Simulated scan of single mutants.
Amino acid sequence: MTELTHFNEQGRAKMVDVSEKNETVRTAKAKSAVSLNNDIYQQIKDGTNKKGDVLAVAQVAGIMAAKNTAQVIPMCHPLSLSGVDIEFQWNVDQGHNHFEVLIFATVKTKGPTGVEMEALTAASAAALTIYDMCKAAGKEMVIGPTLLLEKTGGKSGDYSRS
């Protein structure tokens, strides 16, 4: 039977003690997406959104979110991050009226616990920021899916989504 690590002897939530774990280099890469209409796509590409450079602001939001993950996800440990990178790619099929911005967040640390939650939080915050900056032009945007693509380091070893 699997031991539940986030519960104390009384069955109440606790933050796992990682003080005995080895510090190793750990990385994680997560992905999210925002589907949007042609008008919003053009605003972002042309830099004509009234709130400013959508992807630049989303990039900063993703970095800030990674750095502050422990403040919004209750059982996450505060981590000293070595690096955070947010990248964007377009998935566009104008013939089928499909416009999607893909968000990739890569986070790195050297420590006793991994950075999967930091990468997922960064990708999510970047997606939410895109929505926030573009909602005046249309609220039909769809966020997601958000998922872990890969992680390295730690006791559980490396992971890569097929």
Rank of each mutant, 00 (worst) to 15 (best):
S124M: 09
D85I: 13
A137K: 00
A119D: 01
Q94D: 15
K67C: 05
T121S: 14
V92F: 15
M64Y: 08
H98S: 10
L147I: 13
D85Y: 12
T48N: 06
D93E: 11
P78R: 11
L128V: 15
L55F: 09
Q94T: 11
A127P: 04
G83N: 14
L148T: 03
L79C: 08
E140I: 07
E116Q: 13
N37C: 10
G144C: 08
Q42T: 13
C134I: 02
H96G: 14
I103F: 13
M133G: 01
E118A: 02
G47T: 05
K151V: 00
L81R: 04
S35F: 10
E100D: 04
S80P: 04
S80C: 11
A123N: 05
P145D: 03
I103P: 02
S124K: 03
M64F: 08
L120N: 00
K139C: 12
W90A: 05
I44L: 04
A58P: 03
Q89E: 14
A61D: 06
S35N: 12
S82R: 07
G111Y: 06
T109D: 08
T121I: 10
V84H: 05
A119P: 00
I86K: 03
L148C: 07
G153V: 09
V142E: 09
A56W: 06
G153S: 07
H98E: 15
G95A: 15
G95K: 11
I44R: 08
Q43N: 15
Q94S: 12
W90T: 03
N68H: 13
S80Y: 15
T129L: 10
D85T: 13
F88I: 05
T146Q: 00
K67D: 02
L128E: 12
V54A: 09
A123K: 04
S35K: 14
T121P: 03
E150A: 11
N68F: 07
L147D: 10
K135R: 15
N37D: 13
M133R: 02
K139N: 14
L128H: 12
A105W: 01
A123T: 05
L120Q: 02
A123H: 00
M133I: 04
T69G: 05
Q59R: 15
G144V: 06
F104S: 11
K151W: 01
K50A: 14
A123F: 06
I143A: 06
I130Q: 03
S82I: 09
K139H: 11
V115D: 07
L149K: 11
I130H: 12
I63P: 05
E116P: 11
V57C: 01
